[in-house]
Each structure stands twice: as C-alpha cells, then as structure tokens.
C-alpha cells in the first residue's frame, strides 16, 4: 500500500513516479486511449489529492473525465 509516510521519504520526483505507477492502470481501465497523457495531467495535482483518488474510484473517474475534456479542448 502507498502511504503518505512512504511518500514523504521520497524525493518530489520519486513521489510523482510512485503515484503515477499506481494511477496509470486505473486510468487505463477508464480511458485506454489517452491514459499516458491523462496520468501526466493528474500528476500535476497535489499528492494528497492523488492519494485520495487512489482510494476513491468515484473521485478518480470524475477527475479522468475532467482531464479528458481539458485535453480535448487543448488539442482542438
């Protein structure tokens, strides 16, 4: 399990990497085609928010949907 105490022992970059490794498969299950970029976007959020998303499928899903909209607007 990924806990805040484990994260606090790592560098900021390593923290994002650990969170990304756990978020990516979950994002991929929701939105397979843009999962790399969506995970990249989510990693710009606070680590506390990312930890919350890992524990709350509803939060993750709504953030992924929001990220898809932002991404599509950005690419348009």
């Amino acid at each position: 399990d990924l806990k805040a105490t484990v994260l606090s022992a790592a560098s900021p970059g390593e923290q994002k990497e650990m969170l990304g490794e756990r978020l990516f498969p979950l994002v991929q299950a929701i939105q397979p085609t843009m999962s790399n970029k969506i995970t990249g976007m989510l990693l710009e959020l606070e680590n506390s928010e990312l930890l919350h998303m890992l524990e709350s499928p509803e939060s993750l899903r709504s953030m992924v949907e929001e990220a898809v909209e932002v991404l599509q607007a950005h690419q348009a």
Binding site: S11, G13, E21, K37, T39, L43
Partner: peptide
C-alpha cells in the same frame, strides 16, 4: 512552444520527467 508538449505523458517504468524536482 512548450504548450504543444503539454501535458507530459506518464510512461510506466520510466522516470517521471513532467514534474521538476523542487
């Protein structure tokens, strides 16, 4: 322009480069 490359892609198993170490 840097906005063209936004957002950075996360790739499992690779170092995360999108977020600079502070």
């Amino acid at each position: 322009s840097s906005s063209v490359n936004w957002p950075p892609e996360f790739r499992p198993g690779e170092p995360w480069k999108g977020y600079p170490n502070i």
